[in-house]
Amino acid sequence: MAIIECNDLHKSYEKLRVLRGIDFRMEAGEGVVLLGANGCGKSTLMRCISGLERPQQGGVRVLGTDLAQAGRRSLREARTRIGMVFQKFNLVQNLSVFQNVLYGASGRHRSFWSVTAPFAAAEEPDYAMHCLERVNLADRAGQRADQLSGGQQQRVAIARTLMQQPTVVLADEPVASLDPRSAREVMELLWGIVREERLSLLCCLHQLDFAEEFGERALGMKAGRIVLDRPMADIRRAELDALYEGAVRVDEAETKPRLAVAS
């Protein structure tokens, strides 16, 4: 079953063509890394897949819903099944770690306050603690989010995503702002949880070492197009390096790069 499917996806901002005919599909249970230089269109693609942006042309189906055509209700229902992990942790800094994780359940309720109300079902708080245990932060449940290190805050963000009970996870440069040790801890934790829960993961990365180590398949972008799409085991490091060479940005090139093929 295709979890994500993009067909001839185009997205422009005024005269700037950012996505220029994106085609790919991602199957259930895959762990895919999305690679490419700054300005190549990766973040815009992720926003289209998450339903935060609508393309001008083409389709993007996630879990069977065409997000380009979906109405407000269908879009909201689809997004409850799409977990997001961002480079910026997007925690509410003056709330506790526990409250931030509990917020992940708000898509199943009318509001966040209905989750935290005294009469709310005990299952959600219990599951929130379970999620914190999964990221080894149960002992920090009562601390304010702003009292944690960057690596700990990203682990809280992963617990919040897990609380959402998603089917697919989109991670947009989840370790870009972390030091090397914290980055490795977060990557091992994120991919470990995804595999244990049998989720599907599309992870945008700049760190090629991590991409080679954790990714099962690579999508490489250049100037708004997919130019590389193969199992990671079949890709040479020079091919990954080439994604960052030449005309890589959407404002640099209009010519279509050649699609990398297996040798």
Rank of each mutant, 00 (worst) to 15 (best):
A2Q: 00
A2N: 08
I3C: 12
I3Q: 08
I4N: 00
I4S: 01
E5Y: 02
E5S: 13
N7F: 06
D8S: 13
L9T: 11
L9F: 14
L9R: 12
H10M: 04
K11D: 05
S12G: 05
L16D: 08
V18P: 03
R20V: 09
R20Y: 08
G21P: 01
D23G: 11
F24N: 04
M26I: 10
E27D: 12
G31E: 13
G31M: 14
V32K: 00
L34N: 03
L34H: 06
L34K: 00
L35K: 10
G36L: 07
T44F: 09
T44A: 12
R47D: 12
C48V: 11
S50Y: 07
R54T: 14
P55K: 07
Q57M: 09
G58T: 02
G58I: 07
V62L: 04
G64F: 00
L67V: 03
A68K: 01
Q69I: 02
R72V: 01
R72S: 15
R73C: 01
T80W: 07
R81C: 01
I82D: 06
M84T: 13
M84Q: 13
F86W: 12
K88W: 01
V92F: 12
L95H: 07
L95Y: 12
N100E: 00
G104R: 00
R108K: 15
R110H: 11
R110G: 12
S111T: 15
W113H: 15
S114W: 09
V115L: 09
F119N: 11
F119H: 11
A120V: 02
A122D: 14
E124H: 06
D126K: 10
C131E: 09
L137Q: 00
A138Q: 12
A138F: 01
R140N: 04
R140D: 04
A141I: 00
D146F: 06
L148K: 10
G150F: 06
G150T: 06
Q152M: 01
Q153P: 03
Q154Y: 05
R155D: 07
V156Q: 10
A157Y: 01
A159Q: 01
T161W: 02
T161L: 00
L162V: 15
M163H: 02
Q164T: 07
V168A: 14
L170D: 04
L170I: 05
L170N: 04
D172F: 06
V175P: 05
V175W: 07
A183G: 15
A183Q: 09
V186Q: 04
G192M: 06
V194H: 02
R195G: 14
E196M: 12
E196K: 09
E197H: 15
S200I: 01
C204K: 03
E212Y: 06
E212I: 05
E216Y: 02
L219M: 04
A223F: 04
R225I: 09
I226E: 03
P231N: 14
P231Y: 09
M232N: 03
M232P: 00
A233R: 14
D234T: 11
I235R: 01
R236A: 14
R237W: 08
L240N: 08
G246T: 05
V248N: 05
R249F: 10
E252F: 06
T255M: 10
P257G: 08
L259M: 10
